[in-house]
């Protein structure tokens, strides 16, 4: 059966899975890189992005009659705004008061925020625990490549992941905000002495990370048209692992880690369904044992 594992279709399947991981992992890794906080609620920002696009689709489609490209653009804006806004609010009220406390207390708070968002969405009657069918915002097409097939959504996912990766790299490397972000990530106190408004930089980091999660939620909803309040848990966890695999804090690393995970999961599942379930974690452990800082992670001095 080996022949059936490494065929073109399975490569496409792996890239599809990997690009969703990549979209989530980008925001995850950026926030970690700058604030050094595992933002457990990131998967829930992703879920909120999906619900925001779901809601705005129906609002603008049925009430205001928007269609096609305009509608897709409006929906995109809403997913970005929702993701960014919820990230900003979370940062302001849950993480900021703990900024100079031991970082593990922020981590526990992040877990609390994540639980709160999930349970609240599930309990809140207008949303509720049921599965919602995500609308087809753009017409879905299948493109044949020999005996294999790829959907236009897969291409969009891969494209958006690449664009966002490049955009984020440019932002962090070459803009004043990016420079400030890097300064904050290296030394908050020194950055403050240099006249950088540390809290403002961190706010923007969360807003951008949340906006990325929002976009990921939208694309995930389009690709896998089923949304529910707990949809962020699994992809969030996998994306985080992908980010660690690539070297957490490293932007291209997150994308590389995500595609390695996506492809590995696909090939492993195709080989043996039992293997597919645990492979992500097995790879992770192997990589970290051999190279603890991840694939592209920079070697840093001990941070204790």
């Amino acid at each position: 059966m080996m022949g059936s594992i490494f065929n073109v279709q399975q490569v496409i399947n792996g890239l599809q899975t990997g690009s969703i991981y990549a979209l989530i992992a980008l925001g995850y890794t950026m926030v970690y890189g700058i604030v050094r906080l595992i933002n457990f609620a990131h998967g829930d920002f992703f879920m909120i992005g999906a619900y925001a696009s779901y809601g705005s689709f129906f609002l603008f489609n049925s009430l205001l009659g928007a269609k096609g490209g305009t509608l897709a653009f409006i929906v995109l804006i809403f997913s970005v705004l929702a993701g960014g806004a919820v990230a900003a609010v979370t940062n302001r009220f849950a993480y900021r008061p703990l900024r100079y406390k031991p970082k593990l207390s922020s981590l526990i708070t992040a877990i609390g925020v994540s639980m709160f968002i999930e349970y609240f969405f599930s309990a809140f009657p207008p949303i509720g625990p049921s599965y919602k069918a995500f609308p087809e915002i753009l017409p879905k097409m299948q493109i044949a490549i020999g005996s294999a097939t790829i959907s236009n959504y897969t291409l969009i996912d891969i494209g958006v992941a690449a664009v966002l990766m490049i955009g984020l790299t440019v932002l962090v490397k070459w803009t004043p905000l990016g420079k400030a972000m890097r300064a904050v990530s290296q030394d908050k106190d020194a950055a403050k002495l240099m006249g950088i408004d540390v809290e403002r930089v961190i706010s923007w980091t969360f807003i951008i990370g949340g906006a990325f999660a929002g976009v990921a939620g939208l694309l995930n909803g389009m690709t896998y048209p089923r949304i529910f309040p707990y949809m962020g848990i699994q992809p969030g966890l996998k994306a985080f692992i992908a980010a660690v695999l690539g070297g957490i804090g490293n932007i291209p690393g997150a994308v590389i880690g995500a595609y390695i995970m996506g492809l590995a999961e696909t090939f492993a599942s195709a080989y043996n369904s039992l293997l597919g379930e645990g492979i992500a974690f097995a790879i992770l452990i192997l990589v970290l044992l051999v190279r603890p800082r991840g694939i592209l992670g920079e070697k840093t001095a001990d941070k204790i």
Partner: peptide, 12 residues
């Protein structure tokens, strides 16, 4: 459990 992409299994 909780998977959203089943294409690896379906392709096989």
């Amino acid at each position: 459990s909780g998977a959203t992409d089943f294409k690896a299994q379906l392709t096989k």
